[in-house]
Write a protein that binds this DNA or RNA. Structure first.
Length: 429
RNA sequence: GCCCAGGUAGUGUAGAGGCCUAUCAUGAUGCCCUGUCACGGCAUCGACACGGAUUCGAAUUCCGUCCUGGGCGCCA
């Protein structure tokens, strides 16, 4: 019976382990093997004079990163990793690894991200890299848990769609039988439809696709979005949901992923809700003071200003009360001042993580706002229909999962937070 | 989309017109070594993205192609 490596302790008498050959150190009459599975690493020591011919033969043949199964007595050895080592009675090579390896799993020599992504399955064998995905998995689980405890319905919306959500970003066209279709850039419209459907509180964790030809450390062409929509809630209500969620996600990771955090050398403080709120107008002022380029009210926040404001804030924060002119048509304007709207962005000091708003739920106002943006209501017909048949007031947001992980773990590149990133140049593997 | 930078053994690098049949590390192979933990020692193997131009001479300069990285715009 195979034992996970981290369950083999100095007190264990015998064990059978299986895993990958992490390192081989041949000292002559004595050879040390480090065997790794996803739980940890153990030393297997072969004393050439004392082992069977079969074990000796396997020990001579095996290469690094081969898959092996080894069984034998365990004894406590203070010098060995984990304070114990295994003396093999059987040493079976299950899958012999070819050499040379496309990259060095032990990381004596660094590899560039491109090389790593080309051989991602090998790259992820590094405990430090695997740790990112262990944590990402914990964040996903914590998110489902958070919403299901609060009575949200988990929904799944189509990724193949006929039209754009907001007109802004580029879509990937795909062939759909005799029709033209696109990969969806956001579940936004479908979430809203489910408000008309009376679901009241929904969330979805799913892929979104953006055909932007950007080439940066924080953009992907396929990303994962955590999306939320709530009926009878205003923007302030859903901002609270958002900050509580982020704080919960951090807390769960801190609680349950200490090994993975240690592998990564990451130590963070759990962000405490409520996050500071600053009006857009104040954010612009901060940016204007800190950077040289001219900034005017009504400008979108440039990358340098975003950074300058983040530096000033030093923690997660919201930018609220945006000019209606730079937010999408579906953002609800304030009744007393329609020049600003109930939209918000949730920011990490490094970058934007989430944006959301109270939505316009009144049919006439929505049509008016679509026209005001220079768009034609006719092309939004399928979107507008639910608004005619009883649409409650509602609010929601979408948060980039990869950006959340990237900022949480202080990763330099968003691609580090995805197993198989899709960017401007990469569709393989 | 605009702008900048770059492609040298499996991996990561040195190199700046002749000192380059190309440096170092890691790796692989062989030999020596019984307590390593980035084990050590000796030997061997392995690369200038592609095409053209300049030149007596090009990894190095120029042009083109392909590929890549990054900044910005935009966004999550």
């Amino acid at each position: 019976m195979r034992t996970p490596i981290n369950e083999v302790t100095p007190d264990t008498e015998r064990a059978e382990i299986a895993g990958w050959v992490h390192e081989i150190r041949d000292l002559g009459g004595l050879t040390f093997f480090l065997i790794r599975d996803r739980t940890g690493i153990i030393q297997v020591t072969v004393v050439k004079k004392k082992v069977s011919e079969a074990v000796l033969q396997a020990a001579k043949t095996v290469s690094r990163e081969s898959v092996v199964r080894v069984s034998g007595a365990v004894k406590p050895i203070e010098k060995a990793p984990g304070g114990r080592e295994l003396t093999p009675e059987t040493f079976e090579i299950i899958s012999l690894c070819e050499s040379p390896l496309p990259l060095d799993v032990v990381e004596k020599v660094p590899a560039e991200l491109e090389t790593r992504l080309d051989a991602r399955f090998l790259d992820v064998r590094k405990p430090r890299v695997a740790a990112i995905f262990k944590i990402r998995s914990a964040v996903t689980a914590a998110t489902y848990d958070f919403f299901s405890k609060r009575g949200y319905y988990n929904i799944t919306t189509p990724k193949v769609v006929a039209a754009a959500t907001e007109g802004g970003t580029e879509l990937f066209p795909i062939a759909y039988f005799e029709k033209e279709a696109f990969l969806n850039q956001s579940p936004q419209l479908y979430k809203q439809m489910m408000m008309a459907a009376g679901f009241e509180k929904v969330f979805e964790i799913g892929p979104i696709f953006r055909a932007e030809e950007h080439n940066t450390l924080r953009h992907l062409n396929e990303a994962t979005s955590i999306d939320v929509e709530v009926s009878f809630a205003d923007h302030k209500d859903v901002m609270k949901v958002l900050e509580d969620l982020v704080s919960h996600q951090y807390a769960v990771v801190a609680d349950t992923c200490s090994d993975a955090l240690a592998d990564l050398g990451v130590d963070f403080e759990v962000p405490k809700a409520p996050f500071p709120r600053i009006p857009y107008a104040d954010a612009i002022d901060i940016a204007a003071k800190k950077i040289d380029e001219p900034i005017a009210y009504g400008d979108d926040l440039s990358t340098p200003s975003e950074r300058a404001i983040g530096e000033e804030m030093g923690e997660h924060y919201f930018i609220v009360d945006w000019p209606s002119s730079i937010r999408p048509y579906y953002a609800m304007p304030y009744e007393d001042d329609p020049s600003i709207c109930k939209a918000f962005d949730m920011m990490h000091p490094r970058m934007e993580l989430s944006s959301g708003a109270q939505r316009v739920h009144q049919y006439d106002l929505l049509v008016e706002q679509i026209k005001a943006k220079g768009l034609s209501p006719e092309s939004f017909e399928f979107y507008l229909q639910p608004f005619k048949y009883g649409m409650p007031p509602h609010s929601g947001w979408g948060m980039g999962m990869e950006r959340l992980i990237m900022t949480m773990l202080d990763l330099p590149n968003i691609r580090e937070a995805v197993l198989f990133p899709r960017d401007r140049h990469r569709v393989v593997p």
